[in-house]
Design a protein around this nucleic acid. Structure first.
Lengths: 135, 135
DNA sequence: CTTGACATATGTCTTAGACACAGGTGTATG
DNA sequence: CATACACCTGTGTCTAAGACATATGTCAAG
């Protein structure tokens, strides 16, 4: 299959497939006539795995490690478990960060409700932001 | 003041100051002897504003627009209000995304609790991830 | 054969700084 | 004075994960 056919079959974009091909995560044969790449079913299987792992927010680098492990005949499961645990912890942090930012933005909007717009002075660019927020 | 002195005075890093200088957000004079950059109080004021806006997750590009508006003597407040509203909406989305990812990861860990590790087959790289999650 | 619509490969671009490198500066010592 | 060593500086390069631009290739209709 060609790049778009493969991409469509797994609901992703040709650019994504090309990227994974470029960095060697999936392989393709090259048509000598026109230089087009052709992917076999094995590549499709592999791409399916990659996309699933990306859904869990695994980085491409992590997936590379997993596939490398697997390619050597070893079980990648321990590595996968480790990554998913660590990703959960990290997501928890992002979650809290988003929460705090949301509050900060809400406060800003609320506090600014009653304040007028002003032209900048040499001292102040925009009095709404002025000095700072959480310091 | 030199780059580190300015950075320390506002609790940021020299690299950050250099970056803003490089893209022209703040300006500095150049010592001819050694090429070192020198910043005046106006630059400090400007940097303070930039850092405050970054705290609200404004992009550097957005801040560039705001400063440009302000530099022309116009009030940047309307633009600031607009950006903060839009950033709030976007943060809400990130918030929901983090929430969903967290659940997905928790489910994965839970579902995998009882499953053993397996060596890869030609068909399957890691049976834990196997086919997919939210499709 | 040619036109036009679509597909492809390759190279460049993106964010917001972090990091590596080579050289400058300043001060405590010999 | 010279030297050693710790710290500072500017410039150039690198990052993640594709998106986008460009030049070329393909294929069916006319």
């Amino acid at each position: 299959m060609r790049v778009s056919e493969l991409a469509n079959s797994l609901n992703t974009t040709p650019d994504t497939v090309r990227y994974y091909t470029r960095i060697g995560l999936i392989t393709a044969t090259k048509n000598i006539d026109n230089g087009y790449k052709f992917y076999n079913q094995s590549a499709q299987q592999r791409l399916k795995f990659i996309l699933s792992a990306r859904q869990l927010d695994f980085s491409v680098q992590e997936i590379t490690s997993i596939l490398s492990e697997s390619d050597q005949g070893h079980s990648a499961c321990p590595l996968v478990r480790e990554i998913v645990e660590q990703r959960l912890a990290q997501t928890e942090q992002q979650f809290q960060a988003a929460l705090m930012l949301r509050d900060k933005l809400r406060n800003a909007i609320h506090d600014w409700q009653s304040k007028p717009d002003k032209a900048p002075t040499g001292q102040m660019i925009c009095h709404l932001i002025a000095g700072g927020f959480d310091e």
